[in-house]
Design a protein around this nucleic acid. Structure first.
Length: 438
RNA sequence: GUGGCCAUAGCUCAACUUGGUUAGAGCACAAGAUUGUGGAUCUUGGGGUUGCGGGUUCAAUUCCCGUUGGCCACCCCA
């Protein structure tokens, strides 16, 4: 507390005790995306500022008031990435990945930066899990990629056993596509004709960006939004309705489905189907994941036309939901937690190294291992082992050293066994089997 | 960027309303009762410039102002 330096607002340390949850989530992420055939990609935290102004959109809030932008000593304009999609596109173009692959399935996890006022579920340095489908198209099914990306997202959240999710979907093809200007002017005209019922913020948005009116939380404005004559302004296509039917049928009970015409995402590059997943267990910042189709981004960045879709998930928010929703999910870890107690004299370094060697082979087999510093007091070791929630304690002292054995103590029952060197892994595998959840 | 609430030990909080000797408790930490057998109990101990700066006062953790930070909401988004 009396520390001279502290981290910047909204940029938190992740400490031991908390980090295990992150590692657990990252592991699950790798497994889940591998199953769908996605490959991981990592890109730099810093990118040319213009990459984001061009892709996300000059007038969006993210670009004009939330980016960390500065010049380096070579006078280059650099920005800490506020999101990942533009970086992935840049990397794909720069490395010519589409020249050797017809399409790409990519996923990532990493830190993003936005200079917003911190709040529940909102940090300045935050972390996302995301996926992008690049150039994946099917002639017979123009919405195939949209279907797939949503399936991957819902499947992933289901894999983590997250409950009570609200899925919303919309189609921006007309709103952001070729006829964007026409649609927007129709919308403007509609709201203009009811100007007296609009709140002041929305009157301002009328000229600046009509679509942002949909964000309003004022009831009179919301009533107007509900009555927008969508069939005249931007009717849905047959294919989009078919996609919805297909998606809805695949959802299980814990995800609700809703078509939401007011779902207008804040990044300019979206051109088609967009979607969002919200959780009621979060606070005001309830969006857990969001994404959609962006078919013009690659052209915007100087490459050839490349249809894409993707999503990103807020890791902090995901962990918050997991905590409330599924507190037992991460507890599997402790059932395979092994404490190593070395009770030979402090100066027996060779014996200690042997302990570390044994702990490595256990770690490689998926055990969570705690190696304590050597101390002759077994009582202290056992006290710590039980405090740290170890299911087994492996004891090694002068007796074991001369007999070339490990003493293994079951912390639940108190039973002890003497295991020959080399038989430790097998013994623990056998005995922790039943503890594992299916 | 705007607004509301808050700031005391590593953590959770007392004491502040009505200013008054060395700012307390629980948890956690350390040592011992117990030199190779844990979770309990008991004893003891370490730990604080009361976020920071200024003002009022004989006297400020307490009252006032500023500042920094935190939480929550707006805004926006994951």
């Amino acid at each position: 507390m009396a520390s001279q330096y502290s981290s910047f607002p909204g940029m938190d340390d992740i400490l031991p005790g908390e980090i295990e949850k992150w590692q657990w989530l990252e592991e699950k992420t790798r497994t889940a995306f591998a199953c769908w055939g996605f490959n991981e990609i990592r890109t730099p935290l810093l990118e040319p500022t213009e990459l984001f102004t061009r892709s996300i959109g000059e007038t969006t809030d993210i670009v004009h008031k939330e980016m960390y932008t500065f010049k380096d000593r070579g006078d280059r304009n650099m920005t800490l990435r506020p999101e990942m999609t533009a970086s992935v596109a840049r990397a794909v173009i720069q490395n010519g990945l589409l020249k050797t692959n017809k399409f790409l399935k990519l996923f990532y996890t990493g830190a993003m930066f936005r200079a917003e006022r911190p709040q529940a579920g909102r940090k300045r340095q935050f972390h996302q899990i995301g996926a992008e489908l690049v150039n994946l198209t099917r002639e017979d099914d123009p919405y195939y990629a949209d279907w797939l990306i949503v399936r991957v997202l819902i499947n992933f959240l289901d894999y983590l056993k997250i409950k009570n999710l609200k899925f919303r979907i919309n189609d921006l093809t007309l709103i952001n596509g070729e006829q964007a200007e026409l649609v927007r002017s129709k919308l403007r005209k509609y709201f203009e004709s009811h100007k007296s019922k609009l709140d002041p913020d929305s009157v301002y948005r009328l000229d600046k960006n009509v679509l942002r009116i949909f964000d309003s939380k004022i009831e009179t404005t919301r009533a107007l939004i509900r009555d927008v004559p969508w069939n005249d302004i931007a009717p849905f296509s047959e294919e989009f309705l078919k996609l919805n039917k297909l998606l809805q049928e695949g959802f299980e009970g814990n995800v609700s489905f809703e078509i939401d015409r007011t779902l207008v995402r804040g990044l300019d590059y979206y051109t088609g189907v967009v979607f969002e997943v919200a959780s009621s267990t979060l606070g005001a910042q309830d969006a857990l994941a969001g994404g959609g189709r962006y078919d013009r981004l690659y052209e915007e960045l100087g490459s050839t036309s490349t249809p894409c879709t993707g999503f990103s998930i807020g890791m902090e928010r995901l962990l918050m939901v997991l905590e409330k929703n599924n507190p037992t999910a991460q507890s599997q870890m402790s059932t395979k937690s092994i404490y190593f107690a070395s009770i030979f004299p402090n100066d027996n370094h060779a014996a200690f190294l042997k302990t570390v060697g044994a702990s490595r082979s256990l770690t490689e087999s998926g055990f969570r291992v705690i190696v304590a510093e050597p101390s002759p007091k077994l009582g202290d070791h056992l006290k710590r082992a039980s405090k740290l929630g170890a299911s087994y304690t492996v004891i090694r002292g002068d007796q074991e050293l001369t007999e070339k054995k490990w003493t293994v103590k079951n912390m639940m029952t108190g039973d002890q066994a003497s295991i020959p060197e080399g038989g430790l892994l097998n013994y623990l595998m056998q005995n922790t089997k039943e503890l594992e959840l299916p």
